[in-house]
């Protein structure tokens, strides 16, 4: 059974001025220097390794944590390591106002939940969500709640294809189930 309701500790990716960081590209998420690595379990330690102020993220992250990022998260290269490194750290999901197109596909195909949230910038600015808060998100209906403050907000629920692949447990399982039909 796939999990649909996530409860976890939140990381809000802000810069030193307190703004949600936009355009976090794949070079900042997972640098070129480690592209030769093909084993996913080794990728976690490089997550956000090139993002100013967040280089120590892998040592601080715990399984089940949730990430909130600025618009156009994952812009740039098609490298899937930029998704896999979060999966390796067992991050449960990432939300952002928008994602790089290929990044979004990579996450969907990996069965890794990425959710668009239009009001994220406002929520972060007003500090209605902060690093360290506990949040609860139902990815089927997009209902989200900051359990530390009681604040509720909406994220885009999984789309139909996203949900099918997620439920199957990733693209391979999904494709195999299609073949069998």
């Amino acid at each position: 059974m796939s999990e649909f309701v996530f409860k976890g500790r939140l990381w809000v990716l802000k810069d030193d001025k307190g703004n949600l960081i936009e355009d976090i590209d794949t070079d900042q998420i997972y640098h070129n220097a480690y592209l030769h690595i093909t084993d996913i379990s080794e990728m976690g330690r490089y997550a956000l390794g090139n993002l100013e102020g967040w280089k120590d993220f892998p040592s601080k992250a715990k399984p089940g944590d949730i990430i909130a990022a600025g618009r156009n998260f994952g812009a740039g290269s098609s490298r899937q390591q930029a998704v896999d490194c979060f999966a390796a750290l067992k991050i449960s999901l990432i939300m952002a106002p928008s994602f790089g197109a290929i990044y979004f596909r990579n996450a969907v195909n990996s069965g890794f939940p990425v959710l668009k949230c239009a009001e994220l910038e406002a929520l972060a600015e007003k500090e209605h969500i902060k690093t360290g808060d506990r949040v609860e998100i139902d990815i089927r209906i997009g209902k989200a709640r900051n359990t530390s403050t009681g604040e509720t907000f909406q994220v885009e629920p999984l789309s139909s294809v996203q949900r099918q692949i997620y439920e199957a447990g990733g693209l391979f399982a999904f494709a195999q189930s299609m073949e069998e039909r």
Partner: peptide, 19 residues
């Protein structure tokens, strides 16, 4: 452009989903 999981999937199945 696509990712490498789906590239592997296309190699195996000759199919891909696109929006």
């Amino acid at each position: 452009g696509i990712g490498r999981t789906e590239a592997a999937s296309v190699w195996a199945t000759n199919e891909i989903w696109l929006r």
